[in-house]
Amino acid sequence: MYEFDWSSIPGALPFLWQGMKVSLGITAVAVAVGIAWGTVLAVMRLSPARPVSLFAAAYVSVFRSVPLVMVLLWFFLIVPSLLRDVLGLSHATDLRLTSAMVAFALFEAAYYSEIMRAGIQSVSKGQRSAALALGMTPWQAMWYVVLPQAFRNMVPLLLTQAIILFQDTSLVYVSALADFFGAAYKVGDRDGRLAEMLLFAGAVYFVLCSAASWAVRLLRRRVLA
């Protein structure tokens, strides 16, 4: 039987916390940018102008058809050198965190766009008609009347997607960027206590994500019912 030795954990906590900050940072940026860009994509998708709606549909389709791991690798292997050439930065600049944030934001925007599209379509057409009948332009109708309601309707789904995003940040492992999971692995590998660290990391994720899901359920019942 395997001898469990949890003594690595206390000493590693500061390092793990650094990793957690990376995880949370990527999540925050990707959620904010993802929702913004995703909403733009959703509006584009519903636009009567063919090229615009086709572009948005293609974007969403492609990013939803490929694995996140592949997108992260793509951003890790190709984009930094591309950006350095374009922006003229030195090879020493560490673009890994930026690449990861950009990759996540662009990827998740496709998922957020589908949520927002459903949200926009869930607002009754009469609302748009009423806004137009008052003399608002289509843009005004979208901004003041439709989007606020769409957003409100979709809050639980937007939050749930954020929780999934947080879990997905563990995948930056493939670019050797030290998020919480990567940090836990490093410690476990270094100390020869990989099993304990992996189980610890799993437990931490479990506690955080279940608590967050429970909070979203509570929100749904109390505030939005």
């Binding site: 009754s124 009469g126 609302q127 008052l134 003399g135 003041y144």
Partner: peptide, 17 residues
């Protein structure tokens, strides 16, 4: 839009925001 601002419309489903 300019025209609709001068023409009022009331809907069957009220459509208040």
């Amino acid at each position: 839009s300019k025209l609709r601002a001068r023409v009022g419309m009331v809907f069957q489903q009220f459509e208040l925001f």
